[in-house]
């Protein structure tokens, strides 16, 4: 963000506690000092207006980055982002467009309870006109965020809170971007394709390393973008392995897994030698607070390895 704000004067950030405090996760630490209060706006506590104001600024030639303090508080924004932003280009017949980024920390496993743990991606990924990006590594986050800021359409940019602290990775200082809508094979393998994103990527890789010792070769595909979905990368992988497991933290029914599984079933049916399988969060309304209950909700590498073993038997 810092580099993009230096590069392009139209870029500015707005959200709760992002100024003096530098954001609750310190994503904008030092921004106020560097860019001033006009481009680093501490907003009132009113999410709907954060998105609506960003939308208006975006259609007027600016490139706002609007921040939700936690994805759990994104729902008032649904109206502005799903109801409005996604439809502006289409509804004005190309007359206006909305180059805005809506950043939101999401996901659980952080003792956040019902309201600081939610996965919100499938609600937004359903919407034509929006792009939904879910980086899992620091390297991907930088490259994808730059692309999101430069994108001419609204991008919902979801950052898993647990990856902030858990995952450390090399981030080159120099300029690079990564294209939105392109998945990444994070681990090559030949027996089974595991398709995932976000925090679960790291659990999947751990599981794959464990399974390698048992002679099961797992290919791990990181979707990175949920809309547009990179069908090609998924299909190339599944055609190679013949087996697909989709893993996500979000609850199962009508989730991203359903979309990926349907795509595979439609387009790689002839190459499958096992059921396309979903492993996802349990269908309860949100992640509970108490440790045993939270653990019950969160998938880990063990659950994933078990699911791979079951599928590998076909």
């Amino acid at each position: 963000m810092r580099e993009e704000m230096e590069r392009d004067e139209r870029v500015f950030v707005m959200g709760e506690d992002i100024g003096t405090r530098g954001g609750v996760f310190l994503a904008t630490d030092g921004f106020l000092q560097k860019f001033g209060a006009e481009r680093v706006i501490d907003t009132p506590l009113a999410e709907s207006s954060i998105a609506g104001i960003a939308l208006g600024a975006a259609t007027s030639g600016m490139r706002p980055i609007a921040e939700m303090e936690f994805a759990d508080f994104i729902w008032p924004v649904f109206n502005q982002i799903v109801g409005e932003a996604a439809r502006v280009r289409y509804g004005t017949n190309g007359g206006l467009h909305v180059p805005l980024v809506l950043r939101a920390p999401y996901g659980g496993g952080v003792r956040g309870g019902l309201y600081h743990s939610q996965s919100v991606e499938s609600f937004f990924a359903h919407v034509p006109g929006l792009k939904v990006v879910v980086p899992a590594t620091p390297y991907d986050a930088k490259g994808l965020l730059k692309s999101a800021i430069r994108d001419d359409d609204p991008v919902v940019f979801l950052e898993h809170k647990r990856t902030y602290r858990l995952v450390r990775g090399e981030v080159p200082d120099e300029e690079y971007t990564l294209p939105i809508g392109v998945a990444d094979v994070k681990l090559e393998g030949s027996d089974i394709s595991v398709i995932t994103y976000g925090l679960m990527l790291h659990h999947c890789i751990e599981a794959a390393r464990e399974l390698a010792k048992e002679g099961i070769s797992v290919e791990v595909v990181d979707l990175r973008t949920l809309r547009p979905l990179d069908e090609a990368t998924v299909l190339v992988s599944v055609r190679k392995t013949g087996k697909a497991l989709v893993v996500h933290e979000d609850t199962r029914a009508v989730g991203i897994g359903a979309e990926v599984a349907a795509t595979i079933a439609e387009k790689a049916f002839d190459r499958l030698d096992g059921p396309v399988t979903r492993l996802a969060g349990p269908d309860v309304p949100a992640m509970p607070f108490s440790p045993p209950l939270e653990e019950m909700f969160m998938l880990d590498s063990k659950n994933i390895a078990d699911a791979v073993r079951t599928l590998a038997r076909y």
Binding site: G113, L114, F289
Partner: peptide, 27 residues
């Protein structure tokens, strides 16, 4: 835990016996 069965943050949920309602963390 009486408010939420420890599903939520402390004193979140509801304690109907005391007529306390605090459904969520959402401001």
């Amino acid at each position: 835990e009486p408010f939420s069965g420890a599903r939520q943050f402390p004193c979140h949920g509801a304690y109907p016996k005391y007529h306390i309602v605090n459904p969520s963390n959402v401001v």
